[in-house]
Amino acid sequence: MKYKVLYYVNQFFGQVGGEEKAGVKPEFVRKMVGPAMGFNGLLEDKAEVVGTLICGDNYFNENKQEALDYILGVIKEEAPDIVVAGPAFNAGRYGMACAGLANAVIDELGIPVVSGMYMENPGLEECRAKAYVVETGDSAGGMREALPKMAALTLKLLSGQELGKPEEDGYLAQGRRLTIFVEKRGSQRAVDMLLARFRGEEFKTELPMPVFDKVAPAPAIKDLSKATIALVTSGGMVPLGNPDRIQSASAQKWGRYDIDKNVALMGDYCTIHGGFDPVYANEIPDRVAPLDILRDYEKEGKIGGVYKYFYTTTGTGTSVANAVKFGQEIGKELKDAGVDGVILTST
């Protein structure tokens, strides 16, 4: 039995036409069109291209949902073992279409996707975390080099073997930082790296610096006396007994607790945070999340009121990806509830 490959190309490589045809709707043909033909010839009789999806780049990018509805419908029907898209080289809209298709196919159908793109194609960043993307030249002149690489990668994925390192199996790193054993201990590698720097030799950092998001501050609250203020903390402050079993480090969840009847956290809360000296926080939990002061302010009319739910998680060792997710989830709840401002404390 041969594995089934479904191929995706844009209007140009699908031989529909150039820029003037970029608006054509997606169609499926049960044959090999354009690069699908050359690709099929590289599959060593182990797999075959069963058909080609062709879609105008403008149509895909301007009508993404409609395009994907059709495309996913076809793919579901044909049930291929793998989907191959492009190569898109440095064509931005084509790359974005390949990426959009790849993310949808992987997320919704769980079918792997192979593509090929130039390093600067904006589609690459969109889908590299999930799809297997081969690095190509910046123009269609690179087709002859791209297809064998994409075919080899496709065959390896189909064979069920675990992929090796990106450079070994010819795909661009997906951004998963995996822990591995190495021959030299860390201190020896540090000394070697320092010596290489002294000698002016090449060296490779093992941890390229991360790039941070910048979040613009919300506009100031005009009248605090009418504002509802919510209390949120990453200080691991939870109701005694930790009913939701929030982790003491590397949190996988957050908790929401009703504080409508509390004048303070003291007496009902404790910290399960593993990253600081808990003695003083447990003495007076409001030192970490100051509900007591907020209640005073509420009484004095400095603020309109304290939002009835308190949100909490553990900050220590918690991945930024989880933190971003928690922030979006909690932020949405607060926004939907009409909360005006948040006191967010860390430890």
Binding site: A129, R177, R197, M209, F212, V320, N322
Partner: peptide
């Protein structure tokens, strides 16, 4: 870097840190 290794690895960043083990 999180369970999947796909999260930002450090809590801070600086371009001067070019040699890191």
């Amino acid at each position: 870097s999180g369970w999947g290794g796909d999260s930002q690895p450090l809590a801070d960043t600086t371009p001067e840190a070019v040699a890191v083990v």
